Each structure stands twice: as C-alpha cells, then as structure tokens.
Simulated assay, not measured.
Amino acid sequence: MSTPPAGPTGQARDGSEIIHLDSAGCARMSGATVAACAEYLAQESRVGGYVAELRHGERSAALRADLARLLGPDLSTDDVTFHHSASTAFAALVDAWPLSAGGRIGVVPGEFGSNSMVLAARAARDGIELVYLPVDGDGRIDLDALDRIDLAGLGLDLVTFPHILSHRGIIQPAAEVTARATAAGVPVLLDVAQSLGHVPTVGLGAAAYVGTSRKWLRGPRGVGILAIPAGIVERLVAPSRCLHTATWDGRGLPVPLSGIAGLGIGESAMVARVGLAVAVGELVAAGPHTVSSRITAIGMSARQRLDEVAGWRVGEPLAEPSAIVTLIPPSGVDPHAVRDRLYTGAGILTSAFATARAPRDMSGPLLRVSPHIYTEPDGIEALAQALDRFTRTR
C-alpha cells in the first residue's frame, strides 16, 4: 500500500507530531516501549546481540506467556513462537497444514488480500478447493445459514478467516464458528492481526492463531505471532528447514524440531520482541477488557460523528463494537487523494486502500480510520472538519 507524503510537524499534544488515526496499520508505541528498545540496543552494542538476547530470555518467556493468556485458555508458553509478520506466519501455517489433493478450505469473501494470495497459491498447487462460507450483507459469517448448510456436510479440511476484517470493522462470531467447526471435526486457523489487543480474544477455541506486533498491541514492527496447541502442531509439516528450526537425521536429511519450534524462524530483530514484551505487559497490567472497552467506545463515537460528513458513509453498522471505521467516498472522490490531503494539510494520519485488499468483498476504494486509547475526542472532530473541507474543495 502506498504511504502518504511527508506532512507537518508539531501539531498534536501528548508527544505526537500528528493526529494518529491509523492503529489498524501501525499504532503508536508507548514511551516505556520505546525506552526498552533503546536500552536493549545499547546493551547489544556493549555485549553483542546474542549475549543480549540470552540476558533477555526471561522477558521473551514472559511475552510468550502473556500472549498465551490473551489467546487461551488452551495455550501455554510453549505453544507460542514468532515470525516476521502475521502474513509470513499465515503463509507458513497454510503451507504446513496437511491437505491432500482435492481437500477443501472454508474461507470468507472478506479475507485479507495477502492471505487470499497464500490460499490461492496453495489451492492451485495442490488442487485444493476454496469454499466460501455464507456471510450477511456486512460480510459477517451468517451462523443461521451455516447451520442450514451443515458444516459437517461440507467436507472441509480447514476453516480460516480474520477475526476482524481489515477493510471493514466487522467482528466475526469467531467463538461460535470455531465451536461449530470443532464439533464437525474441522480445525480453524484464526487471523487475530486486527483483534489481538483490540477486542477480547480469550476462549475463541481455534486450532491455530496468527497475529502481529505493530497494530493494536502497540509493539514495534517486525514481529509475527504464531500460537498453536501442542496437539495440533504435531500434525503439521514444517515448510522450511534451517539450523534454527530443524536438525539432521541419521540419513543426512533435515527433520523439523519437535513442537512449535519447527515453525519458527532463525535470525530476527530481538529488539522488536523486547519492545513487544513491554507493550503486551502494559496491556495485561491495564486489563485487556478495560482497554478494549475504551478503544471500541472511541470507535463507535467516531462512526457516529463521521457518518454522512460531506457525503461519506460509514462501511459498518454504527454500533459495531470495534475501532476500525471505514468510510465509503461520495461519487467521484478518491480516498487516496483525500488521505494525502488529510496528512499534508491537517496533520491527520489515516489509511486508504484499493479493492485488491479484499477483491471479493470490496466494490471500490475506501478510507480507513482507526483510533486507539491515545485518541482524544477533539482528534475525531478535527478529522470530521478536515474531511468535510477537503472533500468539498477537491
């Protein structure tokens, strides 16, 4: 996705140079997270990266334990590992999932574009059929229609979908879908990139989860999250081999390490994990439900204020309890151009994207607004006024 051009500085209070409304893309880190990253890098400079990493072993374990609790209760510290991003984690899992020719994967039309590419490639390579689950007009999985179809009768080998859509702030009924899938003997791979740290994710019951550091968890960029119960990971076939994830057998062939270690990665920026440990620790200390309630209240308030401003329409129900707010432009208005003007002309950061983000669900480009707990009401008001001004004077 293209990025906005350089904008003005010094416009917002609380240490930010801008009005930051792009948490669904890359949220602002806290001061404690930034300080932890700086301290760790200084330590790497003094003693070397590998020694510094060893010295932070307890912090890394604490991060995995916190993530297991946020996604549990059927997960432990040993069930969590890391990747480069949610997208690479998703690709690794889809490649590792044991699917034979003629297998079937249940998906949704609103799947994130990168994930859709991974699924399409696996389907083309191995003769897998992608089966679209029924959804309502908002893109939400229709549980009544799913029950009428009879999930067990679909012959699915795997179901996968994003807990919250990236291009529309719709929360999928993940717990209800996973319960039905589990009863039918079908595992669920759940993408929590847009929900972890945003809405409650405990007790969803999926067979595997992928997530990311940089969005609602407010960690640094560059950490993907993989969480898989031990009973599931034993069935997977690790798609790649390196000395960090495999060993040699007696015949001179590489074999993956046991457990989730075989699905991890080798070299990575440990500093990002250190920062994420602090960010997740802050979330746990504040109370995930408390943080979620504040975030979603801001999101719902933003929908109420922004709907119908200069002809823009909100793309999800006004009362949807999420903070991803999508705006459908009036006829003839380019969301990318408006995004750029908001940034350069008013110091307001938003996102815009084309239909490639979810080609089976999007009918045109959209503007996305995603506030976090650091968003003040006057930031939303400033956006509403700037949106009105720049739309009418295009």
Results as ranks from 00 to 15, higher is better:
24 A>H: 13
345 G>K: 04
114 S>E: 12
184 A>L: 09
191 D>F: 05
356 A>V: 10
153 G>P: 00
76 S>Q: 12
287 G>E: 08
127 G>W: 00
324 I>F: 06
1 M>Q: 11
325 V>I: 10
294 R>N: 04
58 E>L: 15
20 H>A: 14
122 R>N: 09
7 G>V: 11
43 Q>T: 09
313 R>M: 07
353 F>M: 12
369 V>M: 06
315 G>K: 08
256 P>N: 03
293 S>F: 03
48 G>W: 04
302 A>M: 04
189 L>G: 08
324 I>K: 00
372 H>M: 13
118 V>H: 15
283 L>A: 05
134 P>R: 03
20 H>G: 11
99 L>M: 15
278 V>T: 12
90 F>C: 08
133 L>M: 10
321 P>C: 05
327 L>Y: 06
24 A>T: 07
12 A>Y: 14
34 V>L: 14
111 E>H: 10
249 D>K: 00
182 T>G: 10
318 L>S: 02
150 D>S: 14
249 D>A: 00
77 T>M: 12
123 A>S: 13
86 A>T: 09
239 P>I: 00
327 L>V: 07
146 L>W: 02
96 A>S: 11
87 S>Y: 11
256 P>G: 02
76 S>L: 12
287 G>Y: 04
382 A>Q: 15
270 M>A: 13
70 L>P: 07
89 A>F: 03
